[in-house]
Simulated scan of single mutants.
Amino acid sequence: MLTEPEEIQQCFQKMEAALKNTKRLIVLTHDNPDPDAVSSAVTLAYLVNSKFKIPTAVKYSGIVGRAENRAMIRVLGLRVTPLKDSDFKRGVNFAVVDMQPGTGNNSLPKRQKAVIIIDHHPLRKTTKADFVDIRIDYGATATILTEYLLESGLEISSTLATALSYGISSETQDLGREAGEKDIQAYLALFPKSNKKLLASIEHPKLSRDYFITLNRALHHSFIYKNAIASSLGEIENPDFVAFIADFMLKVERINWSMCIGRTPEKIIVSVRTTNTKGDAGNFLRRLIGKKGTAGGHGMVGGGQIICETMEHELCTHIEEQLIRDFLIKLGYREPGDMTPLLTTEPIHT
């Protein structure tokens, strides 16, 4: 059952109060946004623009890397543009979705306060805004925005329904990962209104050669120890591949934990995935990275980063190797032996 209409209307009232001095709003996603973030952002922009008559734009930093994510924006014609320095000017306020300020995965400056925060990740002690809606029992932020949209009285276009339904399904892996009853009900409410042909073209896009090159590298640089697999991509141009490979490697038989590491000129990026519903991957990765960087996530999904732009190559490599060893140690293997290459016929440690 979805949230009671009275609760949603109270949220609208609080949101309107939070926006009372806002002349223009920018809805900001986390860096390198995924479908959950994009669909949530465009829906919030539509609600604010239509319900409160405030001009609103959706912005992001980084890149939209995965083919599915680019296809979603392209085929649905979503108005999502890169954040610029000129966006930070007087009279412009910020809302953030699918993330919280200070997590290291977004480009909201410390000096810039968000007036609205909507997210499904665990509430951070530093998270403050005029309107905050954090629901950690939801599998996707898009589910929260779907509830708003259904109760808004506004027209639900096929474009928004398609974006939100894909946002929910991709974030929850077709309702199979951390999806609760609210996510299922939201998806079922959206699906009849969504464009099935466009949805199929988003889910099955053409793939670039870079995709296969990176996948080849991942396959040749993935190593298994008992129920864990670790992949090292080295230097990458597309940060989205780190999370993709972490997800992909969970498909290996007998594997319950997966970690992938990749490096951009600025950051070492780390993703952790688990099939354990009580794995608490976000906190697991936060403890793994420690003070070296920042991390977050939720039950079965974790993401983090370590700033490395001033480090020598050898130091970055050492940190990555240590992360993989600590990954195994924190899984309970106090003195892990050599890991077995994924692409080998040798027996795996059991």
Rank of each mutant, 00 (worst) to 15 (best):
residue 9 Q to W: 13
residue 10 Q to P: 07
residue 12 F to A: 09
residue 17 A to K: 11
residue 25 L to P: 01
residue 30 H to V: 03
residue 32 N to R: 02
residue 37 A to Y: 05
residue 44 L to H: 03
residue 59 K to G: 05
residue 61 S to D: 06
residue 62 G to D: 00
residue 63 I to S: 03
residue 66 R to P: 10
residue 80 V to C: 02
residue 81 T to A: 03
residue 82 P to M: 04
residue 83 L to K: 00
residue 83 L to C: 04
residue 92 V to W: 04
residue 95 A to R: 10
residue 108 L to V: 10
residue 114 A to I: 08
residue 114 A to H: 04
residue 118 I to L: 11
residue 126 T to L: 00
residue 129 A to T: 08
residue 136 I to Q: 07
residue 144 I to D: 12
residue 148 Y to Q: 14
residue 150 L to R: 14
residue 161 A to V: 09
residue 174 D to E: 08
residue 176 G to L: 09
residue 178 E to M: 10
residue 180 G to A: 13
residue 180 G to R: 14
residue 181 E to W: 14
residue 185 Q to L: 13
residue 185 Q to E: 15
residue 194 S to K: 10
residue 208 S to D: 09
residue 211 Y to S: 04
residue 212 F to S: 08
residue 214 T to F: 07
residue 221 H to Q: 13
residue 237 E to S: 05
residue 238 N to F: 02
residue 242 V to K: 03
residue 244 F to A: 06
residue 250 L to N: 12
residue 253 E to L: 04
residue 258 S to Q: 14
residue 263 R to G: 04
residue 266 E to F: 00
residue 266 E to T: 00
residue 269 I to N: 00
residue 279 G to P: 01
residue 283 N to K: 06
residue 286 R to S: 01
residue 288 L to A: 00
residue 292 K to I: 02
residue 293 G to P: 06
residue 294 T to K: 04
residue 303 G to S: 01
residue 312 E to V: 02
residue 316 C to N: 06
residue 337 G to M: 09
residue 341 P to W: 08
residue 341 P to G: 11
residue 341 P to F: 10
residue 342 L to C: 12
residue 344 T to D: 15
residue 348 I to M: 13
